[in-house]
Every structure is written in C-alpha cells, then in structure tokens.
C-alpha cells in the first residue's frame, strides 16, 4: 500500500511541511479548485472557459496546464487534497472508476 506521505500531499503532505514555496504555489491551484467547487458563478465561467478563470490565479506554467487540461493524475501528484480534487472532477462528469484509474495509472 502506497503512503500518501510519499507523494507530496501538498497541504496535507510531508513535502508541504518541508517546503513552504511548494505549499504556497499549490495553494493557488487549490484555491482555484475550491472556487470552482463552491461558487456557482465561477463554476459556470470555468466550464465555459477554463483558461479565462485560470488567468485570475497565480499559477505556475505546470499548474496552469494541469488545471486547464484537467490532468487529474498531475493534480493529484502535485498534492491537491482529494476532498477538493474528487468534487472538482465530479463537476466535470468524471465517474468514480475513471477518477480512480486516473490517479492510480495516469491521465
């Protein structure tokens, strides 16, 4: 069984505890995801144009690509909290088997 500790669980992981800069960067990704999950207007805007909403957050190039491309595996590996990531993927119509396949095997 793989430990969540081993893969930099961002807000919730060993890497975040060690490296503030990673956590700070990850924060913006998670903030975007929380905004989409919780705010209906933002959600509609995101569904219309992921890129437009993503521009409003301070994302690195890799984070921007992962969010705009809905790269579930990449976002998981970055350390996005599963309680943010799973609802975010549900909004985009991703079934549980597909979600689990993505985080386990890759996008």
């Amino acid at each position: 069984m793989e430990s969540a500790l081993g893969r930099g669980r961002g807000i919730g992981g060993a890497d975040a505890r060690k490296g503030l800069s990673k956590a700070m960067s990850l924060y913006q990704v998670q903030k975007l995801i929380q905004t989409v999950n919780r705010d209906q207007d933002s959600r509609e805007r995101f569904l219309e144009s992921r890129k437009d909403l993503a521009e409003e957050f301070e994302l690195t190039e890799a984070e921007h690509a992962a969010v705009v491309g809905l790269k579930i595996h990449t976002l998981y590996e970055m350390g996005v909290h599963p309680l943010l990531l799973r609802p975010f993927t549900i909004i985009h119509g991703v079934s549980e088997p597909d979600y689990l396949k993505a985080i386990r095997e890759g996008d």
């Binding site: 069984m1 969540a4 599963p82 309680l83 799973r86 979600y99 689990l100 386990r104």
Partner: peptide
Amino acid sequence: HAPGERIHGN
C-alpha cells in the same frame, strides 16, 4: 477511510 485517494476503498 480514504475518500478520493489512490488507496480509496482501504
């Protein structure tokens, strides 16, 4: 439990 994690179902 491990909701939304790779070990979901554990």
